[in-house]
């Protein structure tokens, strides 16, 4: 069957099935199971209303449970087992973790991930805040915002190609076609193969993600800046504060909450970063990160135990943010 037709059928079945499910299950509840008539009408209506939320929630709960909650548990189980040739698996305790911790590649990935965690959110938020503050004050600010925001729409793989061209190298003596080397040579340096120089290459990969995430930070922070009460700023101006003081002492403290949100959201993106490293260096030249390390283990080395163990490490790194978010959400609901 042609995939396009298959896709069309899936849409029809998915959408139609969904609507049909909700319609008929509601009908069934109201008309057959607990009809709102007869001697028990009042009790039936109450009962129906107790069940109805679960009808509405049922498909989502099944999908969430199956596709997100169950995998967490299953990955945890896989990380403490080893596959036996010919099917089945046996419990091996923390052997997978021990094996992973003894691999230098893992520690390289950890070290790089920590660098990513510090640098990318910091610079994206800082650039985003700068762009938000500056573009809010000029007439063509919206155009500027659109352009800075645009990389959000570009895939990590597309961004990888874009930046690989920026970092491209030609032998000495030829014209450089990568802008970075063109600058470098114009300044009097020798052409460098940037992506093979350890530490620097990780930074260069981070620049790609900073380039993508700055737009996100800018949009959120720009809205927050606009939400600041005018009076506080006017009062500061009357008291003789200069623009820098207004920005750092009046505005930034008032949007601190939003800055934290932006920071943590970008942190989440960083922890899962995979495509950029996969497409640009594939973890060579000491640029490995956890997500790519995991992919290597799972699908190249075919070692589910160690792969799952590294996935659990990513999960552990995410957990503080998870707890913090849930805590905040609950506080807000009260």
């Amino acid at each position: 069957m042609h995939p396009a037709i298959q896709g069309l059928i899936t849409i029809v079945i998915g959408v139609g099935g969904c609507i049909g499910y909700f319609y008929f299950s509601n009908q069934f509840l109201d008309k057959v199971l607990f009809p709102a008539r007869g001697p028990n009408a009042g009790r039936n209506i109450n009962r129906a209303n107790m069940i109805r939320p679960w009808l509405f929630l049922f498909p989502a709960i099944v999908a969430l449970g199956l596709y997100l909650a169950y995998p967490v548990v299953e990955t945890l189980r896989l990380s403490v087992t080893e596959r036996i040739p010919g099917g089945g698996s046996e419990f091996v305790g923390f052997a997978n973790y021990a094996q992973m911790f003894s691999e230098p590649k893992f520690w390289e990935a950890m070290r790089n991930n920590m660098l990513w965690l510090i640098i990318v959110p910091a610079f994206s938020t800082a650039f985003g805040l700068l762009a938000a503050q500056l573009t809010d004050r000029i007439s063509w600010g919206n155009v500027a915002k659109s352009i800075i925001f645009m990389p959000m729409a570009i895939s990590f793989v597309g961004a990888a190609v874009i930046w690989k061209l920026v970092y491209d190298t030609r032998p000495e003596g030829q014209d450089q076609i990568g802008i970075l080397n063109a600058f470098w040579v114009a300044m009097g340096g020798d052409p460098q193969t940037w992506l093979t120089i350890p530490y620097l290459n990780s930074i260069l990969l981070m620049i790609v993600l900073i380039w993508i995430q700055t737009g996100f930070a800018m949009v959120i922070l720009s809205a927050a800046l606009r939400g600041i009460p005018e009076e506080t700023i006017e009062a500061a101006i009357v008291d003789g504060a200069n623009p820098f003081q207004i920005f750092f002492k009046i505005k930034v403290p008032q949007i601190m909450g939003t800055i934290v949100v932006v920071w943590t959201t970008i942190t989440l993106v960083v922890l899962k970063v995979f495509d950029i490293v996969f497409a640009m260096t594939n973890g060579q030249w000491q640029t490995q990160v956890l997500a790519n390390y995991m992919y290597d283990k799972l699908f190249r080395a075919n070692d589910w135990g160690v792969g799952s163990a590294s996935a659990i490490v990513i999960m552990l790194l995410v957990t503080p943010i998870l707890v913090w978010n849930v805590h905040n959400a609950r506080k807000e609901m009260r």
Binding site: Y67, L68, Y70, P71, V72, E74, T75, L78, L268, L271, K272, F274, A291, M294, L298, W304, G307, S308, A311, I312, I314, M315, V318, I321, L322, N325
Partner: peptide, 10 residues
């Protein structure tokens, strides 16, 4: 915030 990496193998 659960990383989808966890979901791959299961």
């Amino acid at each position: 915030v659960v990383p989808l990496q966890l979901a791959l193998i299961p």
